[in-house]
Amino acid sequence: MTTETVIEAVGVRKNYRGGREGAGLNGFDLEVTAGTVTGLLGPNGAGKTTAVRILSTLLELDSGTATVAGYDVRRQGAEVRRRIGLVGQYAAIDEVLTGRQNLVMFGRLNHLRNAKGRADELLERFSLTEAAGQAVSKYSGGMRRRLDLAASLIVAPRVLFVDEPTTGLDPAGRLEVRSAVRQLVDGGTTVLLTTQYLEEADQLANRISMLKAGKVVAEGTPDELKTQLGSDRLEIVLADPADVPRVVQLAGSLADGEIRVVDVRVSVPVKDRTKALVVMANSLHEARIEPEDITLRRPTLDEVFLHLTGAEVAA
């Protein structure tokens, strides 16, 4: 297994003039090795899209350096463009054309000899053969994104940028698109995926870079990131909100950190898992409080994320 670096960004800075449209980057570093999926995770305004637009040569950086497939994005843009695919935040396809007409057009613009043949292959691969002759304006959100993915794979790119592929889709559409992305990954394409959905990064990415205010604040495999935050949590869901203060008090001696309360859910960071569970169960029993649910669990990426960024994210 080679560990060739395909994307490298060092100290990239970008300020939008007059603060218009989107967040800037503030010393952004990233290293992506061939054949991996890296998730760029962050809340709205963290600079995810800006990073993708710079790496795909759509936007000029102010300072720092960035290379894709060994080519400098600033000086060798044409070389970079020859080796990348981009799936933007909005399905960038022509609504009036049919799915097939879109793919044939993009195939021709990629200077393929057999643009039609390639279009049919891709339609088949993304299960769009049946809808191939319909205008894209009649497609569902999930179908559009799949067509968008297909269009970015016309010439097998070395690096595929996928910017928030599931934003704005209903749950069914999200599943469709995620399984399409997973297929690519299995095919060995190097993918840089941005998302504000933690579960998506957890499911699809080998490595995650967490972005806050234009800077990577944490980086690692999903498991590493979870371990970084450390402790397991004991979660008690109560039937009666009036019991919450009492339960917080009972849990006080077990807590290895701050106890969090959301509605009737009390979440206690603990060190000694089993002991904490037994002690808590006993205390509740003695206090005659019957919880709806009491469980032990590992931190989720959400919690890691909240911990690191102090930001609200969609789950």
Partner: peptide, 13 residues
């Protein structure tokens, strides 16, 4: 606004 221009710009054309 639909991002089609961006797609053209990301192509080697």
């Amino acid at each position: 606004s639909k991002g089609v221009t961006d797609r053209f710009r990301s192509l080697p054309m």
